[in-house]
Amino acid sequence: MSTSTDFETGHSGHTTAFLTDSTLCIGCKACEVACKEWNGVSADGFDWSGFSYDNTGHVGHSTWRHVKFVEGDPQPGFGGNSGETISWEFSSDVCKHCEVAGCLEACPTGAITRMEFGAVYVQPDICNGCSYCVVACPFGVVQKNVEDGRAFKCTFCSDRQRVGLEPACAKACPTQSIKFGEINELRNEAQDRLQELRARGIEDATVYDPQDTSVGGIHSIFLVRGDPRTYNLPPKPEVPTIYLKDGWRSAGIAAGMMVVAGLAAFLSTPSKNGKRLEGAAR
């Protein structure tokens, strides 16, 4: 990364994004496989979670794309021969590449940086594994790999984007559930798709794109059905830097209290210099 200075100038002009459309997702996990193969991400281990077909649970250091299997309440009366059916949605989750990214702000080493197309990228040669980004991400995305000692998350396939290719997950997706492109175009596309779905009677379709929070918008927009909270998408994500002002003010007050208390304590009490030898002899 350090060979190019372009990346330090921040993102200007062409900002890229994902639009993940859960109404098109078939839950095949091709994106997860493509991501792991392209990026050489280690295995998650194999355990049954008991949560539908989801055995990884959430995005993490070894799961950069994560397909959610959203099983809702059984709906009696809609299942043909089975008497009832469940609502079952799929949605491929990923790092949100926030406009104002908590992880990037918090990183003390400068390992997390903004790429020219707007991606938030962890430079593995600089990360020292302090794991402060982990508690700074309002979406619970970036995670430290304890065995490796560094933090990992989706790179937005920065290596592919630099040579003009789409990210591996978007390329592998067989239903175009993962769309990749310029952010404003995708935002328009999301609205068009929303209208189309509504016109077809899918009233509960929603676009998840929180722009009026301190996160200031995300570069991974989602189209889901129903309440986004069902998909663990927070209604009001906040970047933790908004707490800094209150925190440092309080630290200043604390420091003032310590100095004043210290001065008062010494000035109000008798000198002990004469008795020093006695103290030292103990």
Binding site: G50, F51, S52, D54, G57, H58, G60, K68, V70, E71, G72, D73, I86, S131, V134, V135, C137, P138, F139, G140, V141, V142, Q143, K144, V146, G226, D227, R229, T230, Y231, N232, P234
Partner: peptide, 24 residues
């Protein structure tokens, strides 16, 4: 094992934590 864990606006995504735990 029924009723099975479910995803809903009341339980989130199966009650799987949204945030990551501190790793210190």
């Amino acid at each position: 094992g029924a009723p099975f864990p479910k995803a809903s606006p009341e339980t989130g995504y199966y009650g799987i934590p949204l945030l990551k735990e501190p790793q210190w």
